[in-house]
Simulated scan of single mutants.
Amino acid sequence: MMGTKLKQLIICFWITLPFCVTQKAKDRSPRQRDAEFPDKYQTCMQGVPGVQGRDGNPGINGIPGTPGIPGRDGLKGEKGECVSERFEDPWKPNFKQCAWNSLNYGIDLGKIAECTFTKQRSDSALRVLFSGSLRLKCKTACCQRWYFTFNGAELEGLCEGVQAGLVDIGIWVGTCADYPRGDASTGWNSVSRVIIEEMPK
């Protein structure tokens, strides 16, 4: 009789114990059960890492933004300077000498000699020098003058305004205003030279 009651008590305890454990597990929240899961199964081995995923497709363009507020006009600037640059070839020397041995030209009025020069630029000037003997004889006060012409035009000092190309440079003798003409002679018993040089302005 005692053995039968003990068996019934053990069976009742065996049936009631799982019910109590299950009831306690039901009373816990899902978060508490998830926290207990790793502690219970710590002996499990970690699996092989998975293959890395691919990049996703590019997203669609967003909605265009609204136009901004138009800017205001700035302050008026100061007036600039007009600068013009000239790109030209480097300056090259250009000169010529014409020489005559013993001209002995005894005219008192007219052209004595001529030298042709090739001018390279239109914006340059010409300088002409004469070297030689000049003679003037007079019984009373008289005057003669020697001068140069450029393509027939008499110019003074540095000759400007002559176009590029051939230029005929003449040596002339003439009279002076308000004075009688004398006896002139050019290049007597000597070498006469004309040196022509083209110069930048």
Rank of each mutant, 00 (worst) to 15 (best):
K111G: 02
S122F: 07
G157Y: 06
C142K: 11
R135W: 09
G110H: 11
L109N: 15
S122I: 05
C143Y: 04
A141G: 09
S133L: 11
F130I: 05
T140D: 13
V128T: 13
G152K: 05
E156N: 11
C159S: 15
E160H: 11
V128C: 07
A125D: 14
C143K: 08
V167D: 01
A125Q: 15
I112D: 07
V162Q: 10
L166M: 08
E114L: 11
C142A: 14
S124Q: 11
E154R: 13
L155S: 09
V167S: 02
S131M: 12
Y147D: 00
R145Y: 01
Q144Y: 00
D123W: 13
K139C: 12
A164Q: 07
L136M: 07
S124D: 12
R127A: 14
T175K: 06
T140W: 09
C138Q: 12
R135S: 12
V162E: 06
Q144H: 10
L134G: 02
L109K: 15
K111N: 07
L109A: 09
L126R: 10
G170C: 03
V173N: 00
K139Y: 15
L155D: 05
A141N: 11
G174N: 01
G174K: 01
L126G: 13
T149N: 04
A164D: 07
Q120P: 04
I171R: 00
Y147I: 00
G132A: 08
